[in-house]
């Protein structure tokens, strides 16, 4: 059984303009010991999934249908007390902005101790030893544990956040855009630590980001989301042979340092409004290969290779699409046709 099973999950946000379905009938498994990268653009629902897993959806958001099972136990149907028991000890999170992750009026050490005290009764000596280990692992000076969050730089705060997430040795760690807003060199150091949590301690990890190179480099498996739907899911080399036109479009739009002389191609137009999502494939409006069927009928995820699924009506023509997608004219044609 997978460690985390997401089953036909639907998450709704109530807004003044109506109900927006941010995540729509999404199913995804994360196996024990797996490092999954979830990529997509802003508003695709990737962070909403992380929040639902931890039970921290904003007030106007709720799981409308489906289920999230952690070790077979339903998270949306758990009481607050049950969730609190799981948090930090079984599931921990490294949030996007570590600035907001810490309380400004307590020292870092006090906050890590608080997380520990909530769950276990360790002696002061045990706690001190644990923080020694954690700080050594994330590469922070031990003496700095007595500092307040504002005395830390962005990178140091994110290291401290990783230390806190690791404090109770949880089996599952969710990192939601952990390096957004950090400089490249710091980003590289942080991602290296996060990768180590996976390789050295065998933790199950979910990394949420918009940076395709980051997931391609770090994760075992990659899931691509678009407008609340899972459109493609496969091994770390998904971007080498994408089957969904959206994944192809992302690959062509993404600048890669190692790739000389390639022309960048943007995807025309914008994602659909989730208050009134289209009936068919959600990408159809921007897809250069869309046919009448795509606008009428939403495609289901189908297997395209071992452990690789994609939601497109024309997966048998993927090789042809991949070729055509490299031509900027293909995409401009889609923009003109609409």
């Amino acid at each position: 059984m997978a460690l985390l099973q997401i089953r036909d999950l639907c998450i709704d946000y109530r807004t003044t303009a109506g109900t927006a379905r941010a995540v729509d009938k999404l199913s995804l498994d994360i196996e024990e010991g797996e490092y999954l990268g979830l990529v997509g653009e802003s508003g695709c629902g990737k962070s909403t999934i992380a929040k639902a897993v931890l039970g921290i959806l904003p007030r106007n958001g709720a799981v409308a249908e489906g289920d999230i099972l952690f070790r077979g136990r339903s998270l949306p149907h758990s009481s607050l007390q049950e969730l609190n028991r799981l948090r930090w000890r079984d599931i921990a999170m490294v949030p996007q902005s570590a600035m907001n992750g810490f309380d400004p009026v307590y020292t870092i050490e006090a906050q890590i101790n608080e997380a520990i005290d909530t769950h276990v009764s360790w002696s002061r000596e045990q706690k001190r030893k644990r923080i020694d280990e954690l700080f050594a692992f994330v590469g922070l000076e031990r003496g700095r544990a007595h500092d307040f969050p504002h005395q830390f730089s962005g990178g140091m705060r994110q290291r401290a956040m990783i230390a806190m997430a690791m404090a109770l040795d949880p089996g599952f760690i969710v990192a939601d855009e952990p390096t957004t807003g950090l400089d490249v060199i710091v980003q590289d150091q942080i991602l290296h630590r996060i990768k180590e949590i996976h390789t050295r301690f065998g933790k199950t990890m979910l990394l949420i980001t918009h940076d395709m190179a980051v997931v391609a480099e770090n994760c075992d498996r990659i899931a691509v989301m678009y407008a609340g739907k899972l459109v493609e899911h496969g091994a770390h080399n998904v971007f080498e042979t994408p089957f969904h036109p959206y994944t192809m479009g992302l690959c062509n739009a993404f600048p890669d340092l190692a790739d000389r002389g390639r022309e960048l191609i943007s995807i025309p137009k914008a994602p659909p409004n989730l208050l009134t999502p289209p009936v068919g494939c959600r990408f159809a409006d921007r897809c250069p290969f869309a046919a009448a069927r795509c606008r009428a009928e939403a495609p289901a995820l189908v297997e395209v290779g071992p452990g690789h699924v994609a939601a497109c009506h024309f997966i048998d023509r993927a090789a042809e699409f991949r070729m055509k997608a490299r031509d900027i004219g293909t995409w401009q044609g889609a923009a003109a046709a609409a």
């Binding site: 490249v184 060199i185 395709m212 391609a216 890669d256 340092l257 190692a258």
Partner: peptide, 23 residues
Amino acid sequence: QALVAAAPVMRRGTRRRIHLEGA
């Protein structure tokens, strides 16, 4: 060299990391 080495690339395992001290 450190800046170039820190940028993630799509093809895994092709990048050599350089460790920089401090901030």
